[in-house]
């Protein structure tokens, strides 16, 4: 078990490193030059000044040397400083990470808290109008892009109820109410796809479990509630559980656009801005953190998997 976790952890580090290299190289393929972006507005910039700035940022080195230096520093926990503000990348991330984690947890909560009961209900009331309705909602939820759903929510809430989310972001410490209201719409927009996926998968696994012979073993003598809760639900949640790990990936990806749409100063917005400004160290730092969070969550999911399902062996 410990060995398993360690091995998975090492694989995780390797994956994050590979992703970093990939992102590092693709960033350089995007047209646009950070130095020109920074200095273009200044009148009468001489080529020497441009070269000097590039040297300051370390961009005059060969690409592979830059990559190597970034990886070597990153291994010690140093992601360099922002090209833009000069602040250490780690400080920028530390400031923004909690906001994004909060949004992610809220989105995941939307997925699970709505998806699980909906999936169970449509299985228990198979083919009822409720089931049919949920099917439509699920298909819609899975196919609508989250940013579009976010925009729809803002637009129609404003149109119909003349309500719009707060303009200025407040941290939970400053104003919890305002913070939650602000986060609610993006969390819903991010969580709906997960809700739909969980509901669909849970419905089919629940139906399968309800038809399995061991339910017949307990059903004869047990009250329906006991059968459903202690045996059927628990068994049908097993396959759904792994979906949660994948969902975290979707949510993390979605934060980039939704934080920008809703003006939430989290890591997603940081990535969005940094890509625009070609602030390479910040983008890479964020990618490493996103990758690490995703891999960590999936490791935790897999370990918990073994706790709920005794058939799982760690090998």
């Amino acid at each position: 078990m410990v060995e398993y976790v360690v091995r998975r952890g090492l694989y995780g580090v390797l994956v994050v490193a590979l992703v970093t290299v990939f992102v590092f190289l693709t960033l350089r393929l995007i047209p646009g030059d950070v130095v020109r972006l920074q200095l273009a507005d200044a009148p009468g910039v001489s080529p020497e000044q441009i070269a000097q700035r590039a040297a300051q940022l370390g961009l005059d080195q060969p690409l592979l040397a830059q990559l190597w230096r970034f990886l070597a520093n990153a291994a010690t926990g140093d992601f360099g400083t922002s090209f833009q503000s000069g602040e250490p990348v780690t400080a920028l991330i530390a400031e923004r990470l909690p906001t994004t984690l909060q949004l992610g947890v809220m989105a995941l909560a939307v997925s699970v808290v709505l998806g699980v009961p909906l999936g169970l209900l449509s299985a228990v009331r198979q083919n009822s109008w409720l089931d049919q309705g949920l099917r439509v909602v699920s298909v819609a939820g899975l196919s609508i892009p989250n940013f579009w759903l976010g925009l729809l929510l803002v637009t129609y809430l404003a149109l119909w109820f003349s309500w719009s989310p707060p303009l200025v972001y407040r941290t939970p410490a400053e104003d919890l109410g305002s913070n939650l209201v602000h986060m609610a719409l993006p969390a819903i927009a991010l969580g709906v796809a997960g809700m739909a996926a969980i509901a669909r998968m849970l419905r089919s696994s629940m139906l399968e479990v309800l038809r399995s012979p061991f339910i017949r073993t307990v059903r004869p003598g047990a009250p329906e509630r006991t059968v459903l809760v202690t045996h059927a639900v628990r068994n049908s949640l097993v396959p759904v559980f792994s979906l949660i790990g994948l969902q975290v990936g979707h949510i993390l990806g979605g934060t980039v656009i939704l934080e920008s749409i809703f003006a939430i100063p989290g890591m997603g917005m940081l990535i969005f801005e940094s890509v625009q400004l070609r602030d390479y160290p910040v983008v890479l730092g964020c990618v490493v953190v996103y990758g690490a969070v995703f891999i960590l969550v999936n490791l935790v999911v897999d370990v918990l998997y073994g706790v709920i399902d005794p058939r799982i062996r760690y090998a």
Partner: peptide, 10 residues
């Protein structure tokens, strides 16, 4: 009939 699936695996 089938003892393999007649018990709850969890």
């Amino acid at each position: 009939q089938d003892p393999m699936t007649s018990l709850d695996p969890l």
